[in-house]
Amino acid sequence: MVSEPQDEQVYTAPLSGTRAQALQRLQIGVFGLGAMVLLVGLANIVIDRAEQTEAGTVPEAASTVAPSKTPEASDPLADAGVAPEVVQPAPTVQPEPSPPIVLDALPAQGD
């Protein structure tokens, strides 16, 4: 008896996995895209709000208090009467020293 050669059947597993796994990957991908859209939208709102606030502020706000000519150092303990007041001496101005005299710059004396 002559037997006919039988084709060997090769069983391959699908690369995408089962239907449930494919659906889970699809859900995760859609959720990730939605999260990115929300984050970009939120960043856009924050940037727009910051630009509106910056445009509405006064560039150089003027001081509401007149500056004093001499800064007064206050001692909270002396103001409360706990410690005696300490009088600060006035700063003294140091005169600038005169430039040094260089002896080599004098003319040479002849014989």
Rank of each mutant, 00 (worst) to 15 (best):
residue 58 V to I: 13
residue 23 L to H: 10
residue 7 D to N: 12
residue 29 G to T: 05
residue 51 E to D: 08
residue 77 L to G: 02
residue 62 A to S: 13
residue 32 G to M: 11
residue 29 G to W: 01
residue 19 R to D: 14
residue 8 E to R: 15
residue 67 P to A: 14
residue 74 S to T: 13
residue 52 Q to S: 09
residue 86 V to S: 06
residue 80 A to N: 02
residue 61 A to C: 05
residue 21 Q to L: 13
residue 2 V to W: 05
residue 69 K to M: 13
residue 51 E to H: 06
residue 73 A to M: 11
residue 91 P to K: 09
residue 63 S to M: 05
residue 11 Y to E: 07
residue 103 L to D: 04
residue 59 P to I: 10
residue 111 D to H: 07
residue 95 P to K: 01
residue 70 T to P: 00
residue 40 V to T: 04
residue 86 V to T: 12
residue 15 L to A: 12
residue 22 A to S: 15
residue 20 A to E: 15
residue 92 T to F: 10
residue 89 P to E: 03
residue 100 P to A: 07
residue 7 D to R: 13
residue 86 V to H: 08
residue 4 E to Y: 12
residue 52 Q to D: 08
residue 44 N to Y: 12
residue 81 G to L: 00
residue 72 E to Q: 14
residue 90 A to G: 09
residue 47 I to M: 08
residue 68 S to P: 04
residue 35 A to M: 08
residue 18 T to W: 04
residue 3 S to L: 12
residue 25 R to C: 03
residue 68 S to L: 12
residue 22 A to Y: 11
residue 52 Q to T: 06
residue 27 Q to C: 02
residue 86 V to M: 08
residue 34 G to N: 08
residue 3 S to D: 07
residue 16 S to F: 11
residue 30 V to C: 09
residue 33 L to W: 02
residue 64 T to E: 11
residue 20 A to D: 10
residue 48 D to S: 12
residue 62 A to V: 11
residue 58 V to Y: 05
residue 18 T to Y: 05
residue 58 V to C: 04
residue 80 A to Q: 10
residue 101 I to M: 09
residue 45 I to E: 05
residue 36 M to F: 10
residue 86 V to Y: 05
residue 8 E to K: 15
residue 92 T to P: 00
residue 97 P to M: 04
residue 53 T to L: 14
residue 92 T to D: 06
residue 81 G to N: 00
residue 27 Q to V: 00
residue 49 R to E: 09
residue 28 I to E: 15
residue 73 A to W: 11
residue 104 D to L: 09
residue 2 V to P: 09
residue 81 G to H: 02
residue 40 V to K: 04
residue 45 I to H: 08
residue 88 Q to A: 15
residue 77 L to R: 07
residue 47 I to C: 06
residue 6 Q to S: 12
residue 102 V to M: 06
residue 42 L to H: 03
residue 35 A to N: 03
residue 2 V to N: 08
residue 61 A to H: 03
residue 48 D to T: 09
residue 54 E to D: 14
residue 93 V to I: 06
residue 24 Q to Y: 09
residue 43 A to L: 13
residue 73 A to H: 11
residue 63 S to D: 13
residue 8 E to A: 14
residue 101 I to V: 15
residue 18 T to P: 01
residue 92 T to S: 07
